[in-house]
Design a binder for these strands. Sequence first.
DNA 1: TTGATATGTCAGCGATCGATGACATTTCTC
DNA 2: GAGAAATGTCATCGATCGCTGACATATCAA
Lengths: 95, 95
Amino acid sequence: MLIRTPAELGAVLRDRRKKLKLDQSTFAKRIGVSRQWVIEVEHGHARAELGLILRALDALDIRLDASTEQAPARGATRQAIDINAIVAKARKKKA
Amino acid sequence: MLIRTPAELGAVLRDRRKKLKLDQSTFAKRIGVSRQWVIEVEHGHARAELGLILRALDALDIRLDASTEQAPARGATRQAIDINAIVAKARKKKA
DNA sequence: TTGATATGTCAGCGATCGATGACATTTCTC
DNA sequence: GAGAAATGTCATCGATCGCTGACATATCAA
């Protein structure tokens, strides 16, 4: 999941928390914050502390990856990397 | 790059900023924060605001991905995907 | 060195964080 | 529906945010 905004991050946290069958209280205790904090972050609170956010992600076994994005061609539909296409191309070259 | 802590995030931001030949002042202006903020975040400030962090990443064309992590086999060295190795293997197969 | 540029440090300030605790509302199981 | 559980809302409070502006160190070129 690509994270662009605090709201998207909040949605990811909520979805994952529910998938793990945790309620806000036990989740909050697990990461050492108040339930109030969980509520606000799940709702997309933009000014939440970075450190607490990272702890929350860790508590839910969510990994965060930072990578420099290739600029998509203008007007182009964003496309996923197609590993098979790359491999096929490589084979063709050889032949 | 896997992000676990504010310090790691700060390092990523700094490296990318330098790669783009930006100084702290112009970078700060670009994302709408003070130079002071840039300094602190690059040094791993844990209480930085999530929203500003996301804007900084966007300004540097860094994408953030959240994914549920597969537990690595015990004792296993974490290995990055090596696209070149995959392509090379495909070529070999063909030949 | 001198000068220019980049980065780091400090103090003061208004704004807002996150914690707490109580209460309200929604969402479930019976 | 009744009751319980989960979630959302509100006010208060100390602590700390990020901003400003000035000054202090690097860092590097001429």
